[in-house]
Design a protein around this nucleic acid. Structure first.
Lengths: 331, 331
DNA sequence: AACATTTTCGCAACCGTTTGCGGGGGACAA
DNA sequence: TTGTCCCCCGCAAACGGTTGCGAAAATGTT
């Protein structure tokens, strides 16, 4: 049996009613200042801690946000989580974190869990491309805001926060153009993902406007594949002047090839990447020039959106986190 | 107003009492098989989802584990979280994740949050060295198991899961000895942390038994400091034959110096490190030999402990995750 | 002093679920 | 027929807060 103090305990001790104690504790004007002080003092002494479940049951609300990601162990997501947690805590909210491991069934289950816990909002990075429309629909029916991030659905009528994918790629492209080199290789991720498509299209468009540049593109779904691409090119004596990598993952593979062949950066080959918070680019010497797309900052942005929603701004909106170039010495 | 179906809705529709519905749903033998089936069918149709708060209030339990870490954005912790989440979900539990940012006050607040949420257990990596004994004490009073991990308190009477710090360092030391080199440098972390002390002591003890080896040690509280250490040694022409780094963080600094000075690994200098899951060591070419200390696996181990506790094994125990050497080509 | 008003607090219902206990009704034996 | 036993199920209290409403006490107004 739990020995936790309840409102009843306090009310008994003070010969007040439970309702008075409840009101006093939250500074309700109906209760005299004197009583309020007295109650608060005793509550403190008795180490009163409100029962979350009683409150949740009565008010049908909670101080929880749901957070659903394909996997926690991922650079981008955990920096997002970190940013979001910091902000949430400031307003007294905690995070219920669910992993769906790219399994739509688990994802649906997790959304259900969010509903059952009466979360005040849900942040979700979709695992597949198909949004679980029906499950999420139910959340919207209860006026629980849903904020998509990272992997966002195509539809208009929803809240999304995302990185400026096109801008990021464009920034890289323009930086490359300034360098006046000839052979440029762009390595992108899984071609069916929209993030890949956006970045590739934006990048290619800008580069191809400069006829002096010869652009090749490739796709790598893993660091190993990226490694192979560079490795093969070097053996064929077709090393590019500049390599653009769309993500940290790909950069890792490229840099491994660079190390194996003992290439000098930037003399032998220039490198520029898009990176989450720049952790990977800063691992190398010289540090790799990168376009920052911060999960951490995106987490804060997502929080802004939900706060707006909680303050009554119930319209749908898409928030985009600007990216910026952080110059290293890699090209 | 929420339109969620409750037991009452089901009971109305079926002309049964709420209690019968409740029992039917959980297969209570008092209820006839026929009724049970009928209720379950309707519940399914009406998309019944139990109200977590009502259950929590009534039973004073929850399907939540509390997880308190200094920071989420940390290699080790997020792989721990990932492992723990996977296991928890299997038995229908979710994770309430709290960051305490190395602030004892926030840490105390987070522990309080865990109590308020009636979590079924708490996993905590202490931020400072001083355990918040009083706050955690209250948890134990309610028979909520507390599992310390990573940064564990010194006291006996508690549950801990941790890495085999001594073993890990010993493994590295013995591997170094096999290489028959002369100058060995060990770089360790913050000397006031017990993890540092353990690793350093274990490492030094073993190495110093071999008079043919000349051992130096140093402390680095950041990658930059580790970089400086190597950088300076090279400039002074005092490059060690083998460097042992106690953590990924330190390895990063060392590897940066290696790159700046274009050292050949392992010819110019051998390297061996302790690493979480080997992510960092595998970033380089050649891949760095490392002692694996997996946060992911530790997460699973921590879950085992709490499961035991939930099954009635209420004694205190310390579980240690064995470490193993993963050979790269760095020495 | 009589009445109107405000201040301060208590009553009781309610949120949705769990659970001890008791009761109605059918089956079966005496 | 009456009594006993078991099978199903419902009653009602309980969990710990919140909140609309009304009432008593204190204060103000003529």
């Amino acid at each position: 049996m739990s020995n936790k103090t309840t409102l009843k305990h306090i009310s008994d001790k003070l010969h007040l009613s439970v309702s008075t104690v409840s009101r006093a504790l939250k500074g309700h004007p109906d209760i005299s200042l004197e009583t309020r002080e007295k109650v608060k003092k005793i509550a403190e002494e008795m180490e009163y801690e409100p029962n979350t479940y009683a409150i949740g049951l009565r008010t049908n609300k909670s101080k929880l946000f749901g957070l659903i990601v394909p996997e926690i162990s991922n650079f981008f997501y955990h920096s997002f989580i970190s940013g979001l947690e910091e902000e949430s805590r400031k307003i007294g909210y905690s995070l219920l974190i669910l992993q769906s491991g790219n399994d739509p069934a688990v994802e649906a289950e997790n959304i259900k869990l969010c509903r059952m816990n009466r979360v005040a909002g849900v942040f979700i990075a979709l695992s597949g491309d198909s949004a679980d429309a029906t499950e999420l629909q139910k959340l919207e029916e209860d006026e629980v805001p849903v904020i998509f991030f990272d992997k966002v659905p195509a539809m208009e009528a929803c809240n999304k926060v995302r990185l400026a994918d096109e801008d990021a790629a464009a920034l890289a492209a323009n930086h490359i153009i300034d360098k006046n080199k000839k052979y440029v290789l762009g390595i992108f991720g899984n071609p069916i993902m929209s993030i890949t498509q956006k970045r590739k299209e934006s990048f290619s468009n800008i580069i191809s406007k400069h006829p002096s540049i010869q652009l090749n593109t490739a796709h790598a779904h893993s660091p190993e594949k990226a490694f192979d691409i560079i490795h093969d090119l070097i053996r064929e004596n077709a090393k590019p002047d500049i390599v653009f990598t769309m993500s940290d993952e790909i950069l890792i593979g490229v840099m491994k090839a660079v190390q194996v062949h003992k290439l000098n950066i930037p003399e032998d080959m220039g490198i520029i990447s898009i990176s989450n918070d720049g952790f990977i680019p800063r691992l190398y010497a010289p540090e790799i020039t990168y376009i920052e797309t911060s999960g951490y900052k995106l987490g804060k942005l997502a929080f802004e959106r939900i706060k707006d929603h909680m303050e009554g701004k119930h319209f749908y909106r898409e928030l985009i986190l600007p990216s910026k170039l952080i110059a290293g010495k890699s090209l």
